[in-house]
Simulated scan of single mutants.
Amino acid sequence: MSAFIAGFSLGLSLILAIGSQNAFVLKQGLKRHHVFAVCFVCALSDALLISAGVAGFGTIVQQFPTIETFARYGGALFLTVYALLSFRSAFTQKHAIQTKDQPTTSLVRTISIALAFTWLNPHVYLDTVVLLGSISTQYQPHHFVFGAGAVCASFFFFLSLGYGARLLAPVFEKPRSWQILEALIGVIMLAIAYSLVTG
């Protein structure tokens, strides 16, 4: 039980910070567009990476730095494009009550974006595969219980964020709130893209 609690606590602390992935999940939750699919894809991706780390694949990532380099520059490019789209949305769309009046992005495209936010982010590899993987060795022979705790934390966080976002719906009935959110997301994306490029 102590290994599970430790894994849950550490896993939760690593994903609490507002990042590109969390901002996307929050936005989808506010719009109520494919919320479960987005939350599930993000959490499942984390689960796969955490499992790989606990199974010992963190050393592989460290031995092949090209994986991190690809994720770094690919992620920076993706985040920059998404930031520009957010800025365009903030300043050009009317932002009527989006949960009812705006067209919904297709499920396939939405899932693709969610996957990109996860797999093109080198910080995800460092947090899940390397960090959680290395810490799990301290809980031998219960390292998989530690990993299970981290996986549960990921599912708990993303589902809470996605479905809890609707509590903010009254605030986002105002078009100005959506404009501020889109602009804020754009700033976050650009800041993270910059940090990826500059190391």
Score class of each variant (00 low, 15 high):
1 M>E: 15
2 S>Q: 14
3 A>H: 04
5 I>S: 12
7 G>W: 02
8 F>K: 01
12 L>S: 08
15 I>A: 05
18 I>N: 02
18 I>C: 04
20 S>A: 15
22 N>A: 09
24 F>G: 02
27 K>A: 10
29 G>T: 03
30 L>M: 03
31 K>H: 14
33 H>K: 12
34 H>K: 07
35 V>I: 10
35 V>D: 00
36 F>P: 07
39 C>M: 06
42 C>S: 13
47 A>Q: 08
47 A>S: 14
47 A>F: 13
50 I>Q: 02
53 G>A: 06
53 G>D: 04
54 V>W: 08
55 A>L: 11
57 F>Y: 11
57 F>D: 03
58 G>E: 05
59 T>W: 13
61 V>N: 04
62 Q>A: 15
64 F>G: 11
66 T>R: 04
66 T>W: 13
68 E>T: 15
73 Y>F: 11
78 F>V: 07
79 L>D: 08
82 Y>K: 06
84 L>W: 09
86 S>P: 03
91 F>S: 09
93 Q>G: 07
97 I>K: 00
100 K>R: 13
102 Q>R: 15
106 S>E: 04
109 R>Y: 10
109 R>P: 01
111 I>G: 07
111 I>R: 09
113 I>K: 03
116 A>C: 15
117 F>Q: 04
117 F>I: 11
119 W>I: 12
119 W>Y: 14
120 L>F: 13
121 N>G: 02
121 N>W: 03
122 P>F: 06
122 P>R: 00
128 T>E: 09
131 L>Q: 12
134 S>G: 03
135 I>E: 15
137 T>I: 07
138 Q>H: 10
138 Q>T: 09
139 Y>M: 08
140 Q>K: 12
141 P>L: 12
142 H>Y: 14
143 H>Q: 15
144 F>C: 06
145 V>L: 14
146 F>W: 01
146 F>P: 01
147 G>N: 04
147 G>I: 02
147 G>A: 05
149 G>I: 02
153 A>M: 06
154 S>Q: 10
156 F>T: 13
156 F>S: 08
157 F>Y: 15
164 G>N: 08
166 R>K: 14
168 L>D: 08
168 L>N: 05
174 K>W: 06
175 P>T: 08
176 R>F: 14
176 R>H: 12
178 W>S: 00
181 L>Q: 06
185 I>Q: 01
192 I>L: 11
193 A>Y: 03
195 S>K: 14
196 L>N: 11
197 V>N: 05
197 V>C: 13
199 G>R: 11
